[in-house]
Design a protein around this nucleic acid. Structure first.
Length: 221
DNA sequence: GTCCAGGGCCTAC
DNA sequence: GTAGGCCATGGA
């Protein structure tokens, strides 16, 4: 817990406020959250631009466009057939659940809303929490593979920890602090790219080794 | 040519 | 219930 607070102070010292999530409006965050699944953000940006140009980056726009055309517009994000389907299912849910008005979500508790999002096929815990935190300003801590790698390799959590345990642990380091939640996750992604990139979260090169930021061990920055 | 990116679902043991 | 396969483009 104390280590986690320290980790954030180091990230903040180094990166300051990273201004996440980069988007013009909440709906764009929601779309981006789905498109960026296991995908480099630069590839997602191209897709977002394409959707804007086509004039379909809105709940109504995505309901109207056919799945094949949508897949063509988001090609750069990879998994375009799957993601076109996911976006379709998401906006269908959104239109029905909110009656087409995103502000209606304001009446729903975070707990219920999270369960609703997770019930949409194609939206898992990370995507749901991206939407809750960055589009809807709800106090949830987003966990991604970088967070898990860093926490597990530093021994902050046991390797078998699941998403919810990590989310609760990181969240409880700054209870309910939405702005810190937003910037902490952003900082983790930023530094995660510079950490060991191997997929294996417990690769043998890493246990016990500190996270390096610009070649310096985490503790000594 | 190989690896992997701001995951999640489905299938087989 | 869980490891493994699948989705797919684009940059390093």
């Amino acid at each position: 817990m104390e280590q986690i607070r320290h980790f954030y102070s180091l990230l903040y010292e180094k990166f300051g406020d990273l201004g996440w999530w980069p988007a013009d409006e909440p709906f764009e965050v929601m779309v981006g959250a789905i498109l960026t699944q296991n995908t480099n953000w630069r590839n997602v940006e191209k897709s977002i631009e394409g959707l804007k140009k086509a004039g379909v980056l809105s709940p109504h726009g995505l309901v109207q466009i056919d799945r094949e055309s949508l897949a063509g517009l988001i090609k750069s994000s990879g998994y375009f057939n799957q993601k076109a389907l996911k976006l379709k299912r998401f906006v269908m849910w959104l239109m029905e659940y909110t009656d087409g008005e995103i502000s209606n979500l304001g009446e729903v508790s975070t707990f219920d809303l999270r369960a609703e999002l997770l019930s949409v096929k194609g939206i898992g815990p990370e995507t749901a929490d991206d939407i809750l935190l960055y589009a809807l300003d709800r106090p949830v801590f987003v966990i991604d593979s970088y967070t898990y790698r860093i926490a597990a390799r530093h021994g902050w959590v046991p390797p078998e920890s699941d998403y919810n345990e990590l989310s609760e642990l990181f969240g409880s380091a700054f209870p309910g602090d939405i702005e810190v939640y937003k910037n902490f996750h952003a900082g983790i992604v930023e530094v995660g790219k510079r950490f060991c990139r191997k997929r294996d979260p417990l690769c043998e090169d890493c246990p016990g080794k500190p996270l390096l930021i610009d070649g310096k061990p985490l503790e000594f920055i």
